[in-house]
Design a protein around this nucleic acid. Structure first.
Length: 381
RNA sequence: GGGAAGAUUCCCGAGUGGCUAAAGGGAGCAGACUGUAAAUCUGCCAGCUUCGCUUUCGGUGGUUCGAAUCCACCUCUUCCCA
């Protein structure tokens, strides 16, 4: 008996974007949702209590990294990832598929699986779909991602097709595992930047999707309009009764554009990574708090933000912390950035509820300043 | 009073006749970051009218085709002995 279900509560009349409820063994997730990434069983620098305070409902963990350290058997012995890291809300684990992409210089893929040289000590490790499922079973995550092959932007048609076919063959093997209703497998759509491959991948992936599916292989270096185009192509063909998860996205603008295009779930390292590097995400765009112009700016990071960071600290103070390599600076900006994305999603939900997401989108981009010219290209809806 | 060492571009610190506007580090400034090998990485960092020119290595004056580098004196700093 599965403990999972997804209900659509409202569909925006302007865009078809939905408000929904995804029920998992560790609680209910309201969608659309942004999921902070905690690769190593920790959303870098934040405690679970702080995460909850920012409004986080679910976080990510990573199969490959946790398998290498401390070892998935240790986590199983601890009673699972939730208990190990003191997080009792839902967890989604990535399969290690993304590491095939990001650690491409030290792996070898065959149909059987992927052979990695550990970045820790160079030792060889083999991850197959079965192995990935087994590790994720040990971790005990609520949502288990299929082991897929993610390709980089610029990969040619033939290679993209091969990766797509392999991802489907691997998916079939992943789907053989019985998680006894305690964990839910999300299959992943691939196809790089080729419309026909994307559509074919979706069509052949849907039969495996029971309570959610993911779009992978986007935001891998392609221009944003290309990503939006891929999402536009897929939009009419999703099953209605499950959430769609756009993997690895993102920035505020991509989240707005994503929801408009039918996406319900997002995850990204951006808010936490960028925070540690001295950048704040705001409704007016990214602000490099590290810059000299803020040295005597005693206003909060974002006026009107009710996060712990903005309620108590100034830009000048955070700039000082960042510039003196004080960990607290990165923590404060991480808290703000994650809270900001949750707040953004909250506004998006209000707009869906009022059937005015398209209007909201236009209002959002009126205030949002892009740093780079090439990101300004708003595509047609 | 005697002896020793030394003064280098914001700081520390290489450099001991041309390849030196001067290594390296730090600081400073800026940029990047999208299923995290990232509290990381990259660029700039004497000035200018920037494919070239001008001013720089404590000061002054020499030697030399050419000096941060050699010589003389001066100023200052540190250390040791009285």
């Amino acid at each position: 008996m599965s403990e999972f279900k997804y209900e659509v509560l409202h569909e925006c009349k302007q865009t078809g974007a939905r408000i929904g409820r995804l029920t998992t063994p560790h609680g209910v997730i309201e969608t659309p949702v942004f999921m902070p990434v905690g690769t190593m069983a920790s959303v870098k620098s934040l405690s679970p209590e702080e995460l909850v305070e920012t409004g986080s409902q679910i976080i990510l963990g990573n199969t490959y990294h946790l398998y290498l350290r401390p070892g998935s058997d240790i986590i199983e012995k601890a009673g699972g990832l939730h208990k190990f890291m003191n997080w009792d809300k839902p967890i989604l684990t990535d399969s290690g598929g993304f590491q095939i992409f990001s650690l491409s210089s030290m792996r070898k893929i065959t149909d059987e699986g992927a052979m990695f040289n550990s970045f820790l000590d160079g030792s060889k490790h083999f991850i197959s779909p079965e192995k990935s499922m087994d590790i994720q079973r040990q971790l005990g995550s609520d949502i288990v991602m299929a082991f897929d092959e993610c390709t980089a932007s610029g990969t040619d048609y033939e290679k993209s097709r091969e990766a797509l076919e392999r991802t489907l063959r691997w998916l079939d093997r992943c789907s053989k595992v019985d998680f006894k209703g305690k964990q839910m497998l999300f299959p992943i759509v691939q196809g790089n930047m080729f419309a026909d491959l994307r559509l074919e991948s979706l069509k052949r992936t849907i039969p495996y999707a029971k309570c959610g599916l993911a779009i992978g292989g986007l935001s891998v270096g392609e221009p944003k309009p290309v990503m939006y185009e891929m999402l536009d192509i897929l939009k009419p063909h999703y099953p209605k009764d499950m959430p769609r998860y756009l993997m690895g996205v993102g920035s505020a603008d991509c989240i707005v554009e994503g929801v408009v295009r039918g996406i319900d779930m997002f995850d990204c390292v951006l808010p936490t990574r960028v925070a540690r590097n001295g950048t704040a995400m705001t409704f007016k765009g990214d602000i490099t708090i590290r810059n000299a112009q803020f040295k005597d700016d005693f206003t909060p990071v974002e006026e009107g933000c009710d996060c712990y960071c903005c309620k108590n600290y100034s830009r000048a103070y955070i700039r000082h912390l960042i510039n003196t390599d004080e960990i607290f600076g990165g923590r404060l900006l991480s808290i703000h950035n994650i809270h900001f994305l949750h707040r953004l999603v909250g506004q998006i939900k209000d707009a869906i509820r009022n059937d005015r997401l398209l209007d909201y989108r236009n209002e959002f981009f009126k205030n949002y300043e892009f740093r780079r010219e090439q990101d300004k290209c708003l595509s047609e809806i």
